[in-house]
Amino acid sequence: MAGRKEEELKDLTLLGNQGTTYSFTYNPNLLEVFDNKHPDRDYFVKFNCPEFTTLCQ
């Protein structure tokens, strides 16, 4: 993740890890979060992934 210090990423273990094994059952532990470095900015997020699947309950 560009622009982040190692200290800010210390708790991330899944994000960006090519060896992550994903479950096909609901598992809220797979969601990793990090602080927004610029909470005063507006963001537009566009996610393009033709094979994205989500399990919502």
Rank of each mutant, 00 (worst) to 15 (best):
M1Q: 11
M1T: 11
A2T: 11
G3V: 00
R4Q: 06
K5V: 07
E7L: 12
E7Y: 04
E8W: 01
E8A: 06
E8D: 08
L9E: 04
K10C: 02
D11W: 03
D11S: 09
D11E: 07
L12T: 03
L12G: 00
T13Y: 07
T13P: 04
T13C: 09
L14F: 10
L14Y: 11
L14I: 11
L15G: 13
L15R: 08
G16W: 04
G16E: 03
N17M: 01
N17R: 05
G19Q: 15
T20F: 09
T21F: 12
Y22M: 05
Y22E: 15
Y22R: 12
Y22N: 05
Y22D: 14
Y22W: 15
S23A: 13
F24H: 13
T25F: 08
T25Q: 08
Y26C: 15
N27F: 05
N27Y: 02
N27R: 08
P28D: 07
N29L: 14
L30R: 03
L31N: 10
E32Q: 03
E32L: 06
E32S: 04
V33G: 07
V33H: 09
F34S: 08
D35W: 01
N36C: 00
N36S: 00
K37P: 05
K37F: 05
K37Q: 13
H38L: 03
H38N: 03
P39Y: 00
P39G: 00
D40M: 07
D40V: 05
R41G: 06
R41N: 15
Y43W: 03
Y43N: 02
F44H: 06
F44M: 13
F44Y: 13
V45Q: 02
K46W: 10
F47S: 10
F47A: 13
N48F: 12
N48E: 09
N48Y: 04
N48D: 11
C49N: 15
P50L: 05
P50Q: 08
P50D: 07
E51G: 09
E51C: 07
E51F: 11
E51D: 14
F52D: 01
F52P: 02
F52S: 09
T53H: 06
T53R: 14
T54F: 11
L55E: 06
L55K: 13
L55R: 14
C56H: 10
C56I: 12
C56F: 13
Q57A: 15
Q57S: 08
Q57G: 15
Q57E: 10
